[in-house]
Design a protein around this nucleic acid. Sequence first.
DNA 1: ACTCGGACATTGTCTAGCAAGTGTACGAGC
DNA 2: GCTCGTACACTTGCTAGACAATGTCCGAGT
Lengths: 222, 222
Amino acid sequence: MSESLKTTSVPQAVYDALRESIVTSAEAPGALLTETAIAVRYGVARPTAKAALERLVSEGLLSRRPHHAAQVTELSRDDIEDLYGNRALLEEAALGILASDGVVPIAALSVHRELLEHARADNRAALARTDVEFHRALVLAQHSTRLAKMHGLLMGEIELCIGQVQSHQLIRPDEIAEQHQGILDAVAARDADLAARLTREHIIYARDRLLQKYDDDHSEDS
Amino acid sequence: MSESLKTTSVPQAVYDALRESIVTSAEAPGALLTETAIAVRYGVARPTAKAALERLVSEGLLSRRPHHAAQVTELSRDDIEDLYGNRALLEEAALGILASDGVVPIAALSVHRELLEHARADNRAALARTDVEFHRALVLAQHSTRLAKMHGLLMGEIELCIGQVQSHQLIRPDEIAEQHQGILDAVAARDADLAARLTREHIIYARDRLLQKYDDDHSEDS
DNA sequence: ACTCGGACATTGTCTAGCAAGTGTACGAGC
DNA sequence: GCTCGTACACTTGCTAGACAATGTCCGAGT
């Protein structure tokens, strides 16, 4: 008790824990989450649980109808295309500006090194997480509050998406690392067009991997 | 009491009312809004007021530090540039896709007609409101859930921005209407590049008007 | 087999209250 | 007169409990 130095706020902690168990698919898509259930699970009052749920709803990770329990959203094929299409738009623009400004995304560099570690260890789950973090770092380097906010909105659902379709199973770590390196090089060379193009291609590549796995999973039961 | 037929939920109503009074600058930028003050103003319980405030915070219309009253965000010059830059990115992309798909944004057409009415009547306040609605309708026509969500996020702050800088005072209604017509024509002609270009120019035009007014207002007191 | 009614689950909203953090103003000491 | 510290007022953070409104489902009666 006297050990913990600075726990974040209670709703924040509930939100974090809940979010984690959702994106890792510990909560199956479609699973029902009632306010009281969350409240007792984390030992908080119902309004607190409610706040966390509402936040997740507003981010698209949960959905709910007025007098019903919230449930983990199930992403459709169209959702995946929508998410990655918009993501490509945002990151392409961000990288283009970054490169033309000649800004070196320092934070992204260290994340990139961490990613290389995971690639070498062939730790696919950690790699998927670090990959997301890398892209977040890139966008943050552009110092646009709204761009970062919008991108964060997308990445939340994309993490869910990666968790639901267990896409990291068929990711080739060396390819990811190579593509990231290419983007960083283009930024360093201040080649805006190249950086933008490589970014879009990288995202489309990830999307196609995801869709491929999605289709495989869904061809069985049709 | 027995008259009102179908009020939306209470927090929703509070949110709507509060949002309206913020974007119209009825609440001055920087004004302090305590939970209890909102609660008594609208005759609701404090948790209800709290929910409305938190929602406005998450949309960027209010800002707050942990144990302090929320206050109406004051947008800086950089904020305006950030907002309009990102808005241009989103709408440019949306219109490009709309045009290349040859989708006629039906809802936008009727809003455009309404806008023409206001332009003829030289009702600048209504025109500014309808202008925002027109752009929302355009983006909605593209049927991308995430794009609409992100755009909505931006437009909330942009409405605030328009309210704070009373920019409609120096808007030329005929120019706005003309630019909108040009965009609609380009979409009808399925000219994606033109539609995208005109959209960006239109938004940059609006931004520059805003910045001009902003600079005028701030040159006095420096 | 169909409709209707009622029990149950869940959220919506309120009241009440205590704990904790933050700023301010006032007074004591130098 | 100035500075520092303390106490107070204000506000939010979070909890507990209660009741109403609403949606769902199942069973009874026709």
